[in-house]
Structure formats: C-alpha cells, structure tokens
Design a protein around this nucleic acid. Structure first.
Lengths: 181, 181, 181, 181
DNA sequence: TCTTAACCGAGACGGTACGTCCTGTCTTCGG
DNA sequence: CCGAAGACAGGACGTACCGTCTCGGTTAAGA
C-alpha cells in the first residue's frame, strides 16, 4: 500500500514489491498469483469491517452511512487511484475479477440489498420494487464517476442520489409492520 | 480492431499492430502516443454517428433508443472487452482519459442532458429536476456492470432503468408548452 | 565466433548473438557491456597460450616464431576481419580499448620486449638500443597493413622485417655473457 | 568537421549532418554513399597540399618533414579521433577503404617511396634496400599507435624512428651520382 | 540433540514488449 | 525542376518486468 500511494499504482510491480519488502519474487509468487491479488488482499485487509452498517431503523440514514463510507474509503484520496487500478487490472485477469467481486464488492451489494429488503418488507416501498436495480442505481454512478474520471460525489450529492433512488422505489411510508389487509 | 477482436485486447501491442498493419513502430509512435490512443481512435472512427438520436417528442422512446444503442454498441459482443480495456488503460494514462471523455463519452452525456432539458422545459419534469445526476443514473449502472463484470443489461432492463430514472424526476406530464401560471 | 565467421563481423549484433545462442539479450547485457566485449572475450579465450614463445637462445628464431604466430592467428583467414572489427570498435568504446590492450596486445608486447631485453643483456645489441621502439617497428607494420587493407605479410616478409629491425638495433653478436672489460 | 570535433565522431550521423547543414538527407545520399565518404571528403579537402614535401637533398630532413606533417595533422589533436573513426569505418565499408587509400594514404606512401628511391639511386642506401618495407616501417608504427591507443610519437621519437629506419637501409653515404663501377 | 525437510533471500534466466535511434528510400510541395 | 522537409519500413538498440528456476542458508519439527 505504501508503494501504491507513494509511487502510483503504475509503478507497483512484483519486482518493486519484492525490493520494497525485502522478500524474493519467488516468495510472492508462492502466495499470490499476480500483482493485483497482492494489492487486493492488502486492500481487503485494510477495509476490515468498514461499512457493515447497523440498522438504525431509518433506511435513508442507513444508506447514507453506507454510501458515504464506501465513497470516502474507496473513491477519494490516494486509495481511489489504487482501487481504480485494481479494477482496471480485472479487465485482463479473470481470477482477480472474481476475487474482487467476492471479497470487496458483493458483500457490500448484499448488505445494501438486505437493508432495502427489510425496508420493503416493512412496507416502506412498493412490494414489487426492483431492489437489485436499486443497488445498481446507488453504486453504478459512483463507480462510473470514479472509472471515467468524472470526479467523486460530495456527501451532499450522495444524499441527493439516495433520495432519488428511494423516491423511485415507490411511496415511502414510515417503517411499520406489513399493512394488514 | 481486427487484432482486438481476434486476439483479445491483451494481445494488442504496438509491435503486433505494426506487424499486422505492415507499418513500422516508429510510424505508429509518430501519430499516437500509446496503444490506447490507437484503439480509441479506431473505435471513435467506427462509432461514427451512432447515438445522435433524433427528438421524436417522446422522451422515453428517445432515451431508450440512445441507451440501447450505447449498450449494444459498447457493452456487448467483442467490443465490450475492447472498450473495457481502453477504460482500464485510462487509469494510468491521463491523456487517454481526457481523449476518451472528449471523444466518446461527453458527446453522449451532452446529448442525453440536452434531450432531458428539452423535456423539462416542456413541463414534463419538475423544473428543479437534477438532470446531471439523472444522466449519471442512466449511464452509471451500465458502465458499472461492464467494468465490475456484473453482466450487461438486457433491453428490458434498460427500459426498466429508464422508467425508474424518469420516475425520479418528478410527475411526468405530456409534452407541452411551459405551463402558464 | 561462429556468427563472426559465417555472417561477417557486421552482422554480429547483440540480437543475433542472443538468437544464435538461445540466450536472452538481458543475460548478455548482464555479463558484457557491449558487443565488442563479447567478441573480445571469445577471441581471448580462443587464443589461449598462443605466442608464449620459449627462449631458444636464438633471438631471430624466437622473434620469427612469435611474429608468425601473431600474423597467422590474428591477421589471416576469417579471424582477420573479426580482429579488425574489434579494433575498429575500440575507436568509439574506451572500455573496450582498454580491455583489448590489457588482454590481447600488452601481453604480447611485453613478451617481445623481454625477449629483446634478454638479448641485449647478453650483448647481442647495443646497450642503448631502444627496445620499445623496436617492438613498435615489429608490430606496427603488421597492424598497419591489416587496418589499412594493404595485405598481410608473408612469412618471408616477416623474416625480412625482423632482420631489418634487428639490424637497426646495433651489431648483432652471438649470445654470450656480457663482455668483460 | 565541426560536428566531428564538437560532438565526437560517434555522434556524426547522416541525420546530424543534414540537420547541421540545413540540407536534406536525400541530398546527402545523392552525392555520397555513406557517412564515412562525407567525412573523408571533408578531410581530404582540408589536407590540401600538406605533405607534398620538396626535395631538400637531405633525405633525413625530408622524411622528418613529411612524417612530422603527417603525425601533426592526422594523429594529434581533435582530428586524430576523426581519422581513427574513418579508418574504423573502412573495416565494414570496402568502398570507403578504397577511397581512403587512394585519396589519403597512397599519395603519401608514393611520395615517401619516391624520395627514398631517389636517395638510393644517388647511392645513399644499399642498392637492394627494400624501400616498400621501409615505408611500412615509417608509417606502420604511427598508425599502429594511433589505432591501438598507444599514444602518438613526439617529434623527437619520430626523429629516432627515421634514424632507425634509415640505418636499416644500409650505410648512409652523402648524396652523389650513382657510383661508377 | 541431531537430522531433515520446508521455506526463504537472492537473483540469474528465457522471454516479450517497450520506446528510441538511425539507415536508406520515397513522396510532397514551394521557390 | 530541384531540393528542403520529412514520412516511411526496417531493424538494432538497451531497458523493464514477467514468471520460472536454481542456489545456499536458516529454521523448526520429528527422530
């Protein structure tokens, strides 16, 4: 990670990692298949339990928390370029793509979907709201803006984004037990 | 482009382009700064006037046409990997990033924004609808799904996406002159 | 050496050596700084102990042996062009020049000087004979004829050369202990 | 010549000559076959009538004059490296070798031989003195020392060289008509 | 306590591609 | 119509990493 941030992701090569860490290339290859995997693992390790957001009862607050955590962690500051670099590498490294999905992205997608599902089950959204697409609407724009170099959203914009997405899911009603008919 | 599709973007090197085209490496370097620029230019040339969608009067139809054209052209079939490869390359090539934006992405962003603005001016959306974010909501998910290997949207899903986004922009009313107060 | 003699020294490039020997260019650069150094080392290795002429007691015979060995080895046949090529390369490669001197030329110059000195000490030449210049007179013409494309000396001409040079060093007397006065 | 002396012979390329002289490469190739020929011609032009030594009657003086002129002009100062560079180039350019001989070297060889022949005809040397080899003995050492990086002779050493060579040609007698038998 | 096998650092190796340089030929276009 | 300007194919240069592969040296576990 130090190499990534001081030299830029492009300068991170297996040889540089070996030199920087006082480890032989052989040893690196023993444990990871390629550069991307090393960096991915380092990143996963650093993330830890970030964004395992609790359920405060307020769906908007909870989404805000998660989205802001994701954007702050992955899409701003020096880590942004590193993360973008890893995603770039997945374009010609299928195994890395799989690992990235499994270890970083899918947990967060699942968490968001589950939180939305709970809200829907409590009657806050229309019962047929497409939650999968809702998550695409939340994550899509922020990844798109990262990878296409359009600038990350501010916290305020994230709020607006969430409002838009939630607005599209049907009339928001206060949380409560499923309506009895 | 032939090299891209027959060998895969990873095998496209300056040397391969030179060999395939019967041209010296020097000549390639004379005209393009790097591999990505060559492929980008080829792609831009192929796209041509794709997605300069006309205004049919129906905002939903027009958006559908554009979005489907974009997804069909850039995000399915053999071109998908090529396009993803270029975007990957922009992560460590600032000039390429700039060119990609200017030549491919921004024209389409602008076209979509202008179409939405016309619709808003005709009273089809709330007057304070955030059109910039609306475009992010349209393009974001499809780029996100391309680059994170989540699978491209079907035409049907694109329709649903557009409905969601338009729904979030306020009560849709039939096109007409701005309401007189 | 095979490349040198089959293709000519001009066709000997680092790339050709690498291809011919099944070795990567990197490996060559790891061990030698430039093409000339590779060829020089090969040549030195081939020469081995050539021209470490013994002292037969007869100065003329000894010089003949050495000079003929040098001319036969370095200045006739396919090796002539190779050797000339290396010397040519020393004109723009100072390190190579140094190595050529140290490894090939100076040992032979020294050997000749020492043999002449022994003869002088035994009273065969005038005590103030300039032995350094004598060696220049021996080697100079044969290098000059090689490098200026004037044709190598025949064995007979070498004999004449040696006679001339020895004749210039003073009255030749039979070897013996320094004259007692 | 300016390029040769300011940048070193190695930096003299056809492209550099073209750039420096404000002439197109094509034009250079129209008139000269290769770099060496350009430089050779420039050098020949500069030499002019140098070393067309007159016959003073004293063979030693005349040889001294010629040899010193040659050494001073070709083998010391900035021209030495240029001249050595041209000779180096003749090792892989046969035509250049021929031109160098014809235009630079042979005229001087011939001049020396003729002067020696006149001296011999006047009875200054033994009638069977090998004049061709005598010239080799004069020029050989100075070219050898130039091309093998052994350092040029001083004027004093040149005098000694000439004395040695002349000494080897037989008993020197004052010039006079051929002895009547 | 001694042996032995696993693991390590170091880095050489065969490769592939890079981006640069120069060659000698060819083409364009202005004076 | 000549020549400057310079594009072009070709090919070697020297460099950077890749991923594989020995080497010894060191631990640490089992005998």
């Amino acid at each position: 990670m130090e190499l990534c941030t001081t030299e830029g992701y492009g300068k991170v090569t297996i040889e540089a990692i070996a030199a920087r860490s006082g480890v032989s290339k052989k040893t690196i290859y023993r444990w990871w298949p390629a550069k991307g995997a090393v960096v991915l693992e380092a990143m996963v390790e650093m993330v830890g339990e970030v964004t395992q957001f609790p359920d405060t009862g307020d769906i908007v607050t909870d989404l805000r928390n998660q989205m802001i955590a994701v954007v702050d962690y992955f899409m701003t500051g020096p880590r942004a370029a590193v993360y973008a670099g890893i995603i770039a590498e997945t374009q010609h490294d299928e195994a890395l793509a799989r690992n990235l999905l499994e270890q970083l992205l899918e947990p967060r997608i699942r968490a968001a979907q589950e939180r939305l599902r709970r809200a829907r089950d409590q009657g806050q959204f229309a019962p047929d709201a497409d939650l999968e697409m809702a998550v695409d609407l939340l994550y899509g724009p922020i990844y798109y803006r990262l990878l296409l170099h359009l600038g990350a959203y501010s916290h305020k914009q994230i709020g607006a984004l969430i409002d838009l997405v939630i607005g599209s899911l049907g009339p928001v009603r206060p949380a409560g037990p499923p309506p009895v008919q």
